[in-house]
Computed example of a mutant assay.
Amino acid sequence: MAGNAKASALRALLAKGEFILAPGIYDGISARVADRMGFPALYMTGYGATASMLGLPDAGLATYSDMVGRAEMICSVIDTPLIADADTGYGGLLNVQRTVRGYEAAGVAAIQIEDQEMPKKCGHTPGRRVVPAEDMVLKIRVAADARRDANTLIVARTDARTAHGLDEALRRAKLYEEAGADIIFVESPESEAELQRIGKEVSKPLLANMVEFGKTPRVETARLKEWGFDLAIYPGLGFSVAAEAMRQAWQHLKEKGTSNDMIVPQYRGMHELMGFPEVWEFEKKWAQV
Rank of each mutant, 00 (worst) to 15 (best):
D85M: 14
G275V: 05
A59W: 00
A163E: 06
M246S: 10
E187T: 01
T125N: 02
E192C: 03
K16T: 03
I113S: 05
M136F: 15
T152V: 09
G236E: 01
W250E: 13
A156T: 01
M118W: 05
G165V: 10
Q112N: 15
A51D: 00
V279M: 09
S240D: 13
I113N: 08
V279I: 09
S30T: 09
G257N: 04
F213H: 09
L166D: 04
Q97A: 15
P119R: 03
Q116S: 04
E134V: 08
F213M: 04
D58R: 06
V96W: 09
R128E: 01
K284R: 13
Q112R: 09
E255L: 10
A146G: 05
V264S: 12
V211H: 10
T162I: 07
A222V: 03
L175T: 03
L237K: 10
D115W: 11
V202L: 07
M37R: 13
S52D: 08
D167I: 04
D149T: 07
M210N: 01
A9M: 05
W280E: 08
R36E: 09
V137K: 02
D58G: 04
G228D: 09
N260E: 12
M1V: 10
D27M: 05
R98V: 13
G48F: 00
A143V: 03
R171P: 00
L21G: 02
R11D: 07
L153K: 00
G257F: 13
T162G: 02
A173Q: 14
A109V: 08
A143Y: 01
D87P: 05
A110N: 01
K204H: 15
T45D: 04
E134Y: 06
A41N: 00
A105Y: 03
S188N: 06
A105N: 14
V33F: 05
